[in-house]
Write a protein that binds this DNA or RNA. Structure first.
Lengths: 229, 229
DNA sequence: CCAAAAGTGTTATCGCTACACCCATGA
DNA sequence: TCATGGGTGTAGCGATAACACTTTTGG
């Protein structure tokens, strides 16, 4: 069967993951010190080669799990990079994914073992190859997307407060939001469940915890209305 | 150098193009009758294999030009498909692009020579492999995107009327729009230049021609405001 | 003069912005 | 009691939707 395509060139395919997390009030990226040539010792995204029995999405999941221990997280392909000399080691086509994860759920041991670290999005070191471009593209995409889809909740713990959520959106959108209006907007969507518990870490009065209600969101979404910040 | 990656598997990579056009009041796709196995005679998107000295974007442009004669059109990568059995002939990873073009600017000879035809978006035939999924994904993307970027103008002739533009948006969004409000909205953006000429094809009174003003749009865009339907 | 499409005007309503204000509590 | 962050109320503005209306012209 494969004779139809004989003579066509073949390529190495890799997958690179831009892994986002959120801590306190900073958006962070999980980066790794590269442990093999080329450019050993430099920082890079998590990556790996596509294996014979895998599709790209599976490879991305494998890579994410390898470095964080997590499964079933928000993980999306966003672009495939194919510049001829993007990797000086060889012609490698790389499919890039971004993931949104809850830092506190990651396997710290695993992260440490693989020389990975959470780095502030505005204190990025030099990255190898075209990895900076990948990061920038992923950032642009989540900045746009977070306005229309409830991405934010992927980055926060199960229980979170409205001020926390607001700080997250401020970190993503890189601008201050009016707290009164943000609160009204979010609550008016009716996709949050208020808990009886308070978080006193950031203030004396304490802020009520909320939970994202996936069921309500799905109803709202299928009935035509839209999440929109 | 390439010894770093020795032992990793290599893959065939193809590029498939979802080519959109607009005629009268219908959104259309350029499809082709496949002239070689497998599934010879079936309909498919325009595609081809990535060549050694190319990057994906160049391959997509090459394919688009081959079938339409056009260069410098709106052409964007949107997803890379890698299901193990997506092509029964061999393991092929396919990067999909969508293009928005002005049908009247295409090279009719070329289209005909390659057995390509413009097919109504709501009268699609069976497509090979996962090409239908590609079409659906591209449609979703342009439906979303056309609300925030002036995509519409890519599909219309240089000179077009407001009612024509409205019909296009109705075809993309698949719903009727109020003509009074649509007109006000579009004109309020001040990105159209009114011409002195009228189009009498669709009415006795005739509708004034307009032109998209890229310069004004860029100003508007960089100054922060947004195109939004 | 009528039908039909192009194009204008009017109004009520909704959502957003900005900002003033009140609340709870630990130090 | 006061500083601090959490949380509420409200007036004004601008955009939108709905729809009634006028204009133009070929048949």
């Amino acid at each position: 069967m494969s004779s139809f395509y004989s003579g066509e060139p073949k390529y190495l395919i890799s997958v690179d993951c831009v892994i986002f997390g959120f801590d306190k009030d900073k958006l962070k990226l999980l980066l790794v010190k590269r442990m093999r040539p080329p450019q050993e010792g430099d920082w890079s995204l998590m990556g790996g080669f596509l294996q014979k029995d895998e599709q790209l999405e599976q490879a991305a999941q494998r890579i994410l799990t390898k470095w964080t221990g997590l499964e079933q997280v928000f993980l999306e392909q966003f672009y495939t990079f194919s510049e001829l000399d993007r990797d000086p080691g060889a012609r490698v086509i790389s499919s890039a994914f971004y993931a949104l994860i809850k830092i506190e759920e990651t396997d710290k041991e695993l992260t440490k073992k693989h020389n990975a670290e959470w780095i502030d999005i505005d204190k990025l070191p030099e990255l190898i190859f075209d990895h900076l471009r990948m990061v920038q593209m992923a950032l642009e995409i989540i900045r746009h997307k977070c306005r229309f889809e409830p991405l934010g909740f992927e980055l926060l713990p199960e229980k979170f407060t409205i001020p926390q959520l607001q700080k997250l959106y401020e970190a993503i959108l890189q601008r201050k939001l009016d707290n009164a209006n943000f609160r009204k907007k979010i609550l008016s969507m009716k996709i949050l469940k208020k808990l009886d518990e308070k978080d006193k870490e950031f203030s004396k009065r304490g802020a009520f915890y909320y939970q994202f209600d996936q069921v309500k969101y799905n109803k709202l979404n299928t009935s035509g209305s839209l999440f929109e910040i």
